[in-house]
């Protein structure tokens, strides 16, 4: 009974194995070598904060997982499947769009600049992918989206357009839009750094809320060190294209002896980190 076996193995995989595995990932833009061999495992439900100086490649790391950028070499494994390579006649070849689509359904992303669809209402922003990608009934999609909008505190704005919202509200909609798809891994790319300082809190509050729910893995690129310390299971410090330090928030943010990390954190605590 090979099929049953398969199933059991798969369940085992989901519990003990990482949901995302970066294997010796390198990435160059032209002559610029941005990532020089990244190995990183993300466990199901794990919250990982990714920190590092500007230009160290934090955004690039998560964009490759979202299939927005292709690695120069190395493998990214999602749920046991190679993201950027597929089998063709017993050869590993570059993944095509269909292959990418099969895998990236498990991944969601929230962008620094929200990227809401300006021609759709808030509700439509949330329902459109449910209806067209997940083939959900419109009514069901709307119910699920309304619940999520209420959860992020924007239930009353469902028929507004993005241009009518504040930055903090836009980012909360962007999160609702990503969350209704129920990804297993959610990527956050400095989601508060385009916001006015007084709007940061409401967005962090929502992330805190999502994190508490538990089952979804999260990779947060962030410059909010206190927030990283608060919600992350693990902090990863990226420097010069490699992972220079990684561990629990306490280990990395308080007890590390890494000099580059020390000076990076020092710059932050003096308030000119960004």
């Amino acid at each position: 009974m090979p099929q049953v076996m398969d199933k059991e193995v798969k369940q085992g995989v989901q519990q003990d194995e990482p949901i995302v595995k970066y294997e010796n990932i390198c990435k160059s833009f032209g002559d610029l070598e941005v990532l020089k061999g990244i190995d990183l495992d993300i466990m199901p439900g794990e919250k990982v904060a990714l920190i590092g100086p500007s230009g160290s490649g934090k955004t690039t790391i998560i964009r490759m997982l979202m299939t927005l950028e292709e690695p120069t070499s190395g493998n990214i494994i999602v749920n046991g499947k190679n993201l950027w390579k597929m089998n063709k006649n017993d050869h590993l070849v570059r993944a095509n769009d269909k292959h990418l689509r099969q895998i990236r359904g498990d991944i969601g992303m929230v962008f620094q600049h929200f990227n809401l669809f300006p021609h759709m209402t808030i509700l439509e922003n949330c329902t459109t992918a449910l209806i067209h990608v997940k083939k959900m009934e419109k009514k069901e999609a709307e119910e699920r989206s309304m619940k999520m909008l209420e959860k992020v505190g924007l239930g009353d704005k469902f028929d507004a357009y993005p241009s009518q919202l504040s930055g903090g509200q836009k980012q909360r909609v962007a999160m609702a839009r990503a969350l209704v798809m129920r990804p297993q891994v959610m990527l956050f790319d400095e989601v508060t750094s385009a916001l006015d300082p007084e709007l940061v809190g409401e967005v962090l509050e929502v992330i805190r809320d999502i994190a508490k729910d538990g089952e979804m893995a999260m990779i947060l690129v962030t410059h909010e060190m206190d927030f990283a310390q608060e919600i992350a299971d693990r902090v990863v410090f990226l420097d010069n294209g490699v992972i220079a330090e990684e561990g629990t928030p306490e280990e990395v943010l308080e007890k590390s002896n890494n000099e580059r990390l020390q000076s990076f954190l020092h710059r932050f605590r003096n308030g000119n980190g960004v």
């Binding site: 979202m66 299939t67 927005l68 769009d97 990236r104 969601g108 992303m109 990227n115 067209h132 798809m181």
Partner: peptide
């Protein structure tokens, strides 16, 4: 804006859906 296409990709739309929607 190219962020629009990226957001659509993140929602796992096909290329055709990205264009149309």
């Amino acid at each position: 804006d190219k962020g629009q296409r990226e957001a659509a990709t993140a929602l796992n739309m096909t290329r055709f859906q990205q264009m149309r929607l």
